[in-house]
Design a protein around this nucleic acid. Structure first.
Lengths: 203, 203
DNA sequence: GTTGATCTGGAGCGACCGCTACAGAATCCA
DNA sequence: TGGATTCTGTAGCGGTCGCTCCAGATCAAC
């Protein structure tokens, strides 16, 4: 064919994603992105096109590597209630490790209102996360780990809202007790924690 | 003294705030702000100093005119549980009226991670909102409208998180059923609705 | 009316923005 | 080896950025 690329596209995409994640869309210049990727500006445009196109690639990469991977891992390895609990706990831990927050939440606030295409992606992926919570609540009600009286739809909506709220607090008010308290109280709507084999203690 | 200003500072501040609110910090230029305020760029600098100083003024103005005013109004005119419910319902309604979201949440995500002073303000004001929720939960437990078994601190943390989450969804996934479901489920942690004078419809 | 202080807006500073033209370097197929 | 084709970096395009200078306008105090 012709001269091959001297860089790995996935690695470069990851580096660019980190920059967008840390600094936001508007505050990250294409020169910054090129430097982070180890490429000249012209190579960035040659490989990924305009800045906006690169951002959508990064957003996709983020969602695949983080949100979707987490959902798939938890949903296949844990029973439903534990999957929900683990998801929130992981969000809390990640939020305390760094103040990056969530690229999806960042994009929702900064970019989505001014870009219909990205707004569609954002809404779609949020619906995806909402769906994970809804499936898990329903499955939890089926296996008895989640109270049968709660509304799975509203509960999934609250959990989605809680995740997004935690991501905002991660950047603006990052205190462990706050994030843990909010997560714990959100989980309380699922009803009494599963008491393994011992008989339940419902009121 | 000397020549008086040809504009009202409060009005100008309000106009600038609207621009920051809609477009974010980085994407709003001082020329944009001047046009919105009806001022030349030089007058903006003469009256408000640099862009960052103007933003902090706008953030203060927003918080006084919106968050603090709402807290004060609800806390003085409604019993505690109803104040909490009204706060969330107002957030949902405002979020559905426009996709602006919340300037505090926007600032928390976009500006706070890169500006320690603004981060302090953000954390302070979030703590203020958290305090309103905590006071209201405690007062509600005292007058019997809030379940006595819930932890006021964790509940206030969840409500703060919910408000921030709702503001993210307002910009990225603005559907009435979603926002209302999340708010309703968040309020469910307060326990059974109060049996006030109006006939309740508790399940 | 004069003075003195403040406000106003046009012009413009250097720097950076997103983006691209272009020439050379590197690889493939023949 | 010799195109053909793709990648890469330099240089630079027009435009906008945050910010400032400065001359003139406009007021209060005298």
């Amino acid at each position: 064919m012709a001269r091959p690329r001297a860089f790995d596209e996935g690695t470069a995409l990851e580096a660019a994603m980190q920059r967008f994640w840390a600094d936001g869309y508007a505050a990250t210049s294409v020169r910054d992105l090129g430097a982070a990727m180890g490429l000249s500006q012209a190579s960035v445009y040659n490989a990924f096109g305009a800045k906006r196109a690169l951002f959508t690639r990064c957003l996709d990469h983020y969602l695949d590597a983080n949100m979707r991977a987490r959902i798939a891992r938890l949903e296949t390895t844990l029973p439903p209630r534990q999957a929900i609990e683990a998801f929130l706990h992981e969000i809390v831990e990640r939020s305390l490790e760094s103040r990056l927050g969530c690229l999806l939440a960042n994009a929702a606030l900064e970019v989505a209102p001014h870009d219909a295409d990205i707004a569609d992606v954002v809404a779609e992926r949020m619906a995806e996360l909402e769906g994970f919570f809804r499936r898990s609540v329903v499955a939890g009600q089926r296996d008895g780990s989640v109270s049968g009286t709660v509304d799975p739809i509203a509960t999934a909506q609250l959990l989605l809202t809680t995740v997004m709220g935690l991501r905002v607090l991660a950047r603006g008010y990052p205190q462990r007790s706050l994030l843990e308290g909010a997560a714990r109280q959100a989980l309380s709507v699922l009803g009494a924690p599963p008491t393994t084999t011992t008989p339940g203690n419902a009121p």
